[in-house]
């Protein structure tokens, strides 16, 4: 399963307006629910906030990967967001978050869920990739950066 296959331009928010954790999560879920009218925005928001309660998914270096389980889906659902100003996400290194991957996994798919988390953080581990994501023009560009980065991972 590749992350790029789960993303498309419609679920990428390339200029987030939110500045705090809750509104960032709402903004990202709002975009997802526009694309997937079968998913309830309020449900998605509460699932993500429920996970944040255990500790921030802002893993530092400007990255946040809010995620959770959504019983009503049968395969992974992802979204992407970028904030140039940065969001106060209570990240582990206390710095603002700029790059967001939202991830929903079906219930009973712990392995897929964990693998996707690992893959996303692997892609974002490369400082150059993060920099290119920040400099990318729009959703199309962002998608291409992720695509290339993932391909490089597979080769190595």
């Amino acid at each position: 399963m590749a992350i790029r296959d789960l993303l498309n331009e419609d679920v990428i928010v390339s200029d987030m307006t939110a500045r705090d954790k809750k509104s960032a999560i709402i903004e990202l879920c709002h975009r997802l629910s526009e694309r997937r009218p079968d998913l309830d925005q309020g449900r998605m928001v509460s699932v993500l906030l429920n996970r944040e309660r255990l500790g921030s998914t802002g893993i530092g270096q400007g990255i946040a990967i809010p995620h959770g389980k959504l019983p009503e889906i049968d395969s992974l659902v992802t979204g992407f967001g970028r904030s140039r100003e940065g969001v106060d996400f209570a990240s582990m290194d206390d710095s603002p978050a700029h790059i967001f991957f939202v991830l929903f996994a079906p219930a009973g798919a712990a392995r897929t869920h964990l693998d996707a988390l690992a893959r996303i953080s692997q892609i974002l581990q490369d400082e150059k990739v993060r920099q290119m994501l920040m400099e990318a023009e729009g959703p199309g560009d962002i998608l291409k950066v992720i695509d290339d980065a993932e391909k490089r991972l597979e080769v190595s």
């Binding site: 699932v47 429920n50 996970r51 309660r53 255990l54 995620h67 959770g68 389980k69 996994a105 009973g108 712990a110 392995r111 869920h113 964990l114 693998d115 988390l117 690992a118």
Partner: peptide, 18 residues
């Protein structure tokens, strides 16, 4: 780590933890 229902690792097998 306390395994909460909301944690991605909940109901995962140890071997599946990446």
């Amino acid at each position: 780590y306390y395994i909460d229902e909301a944690s991605a690792a909940c109901f995962a097998r140890i071997g599946d933890l990446p």
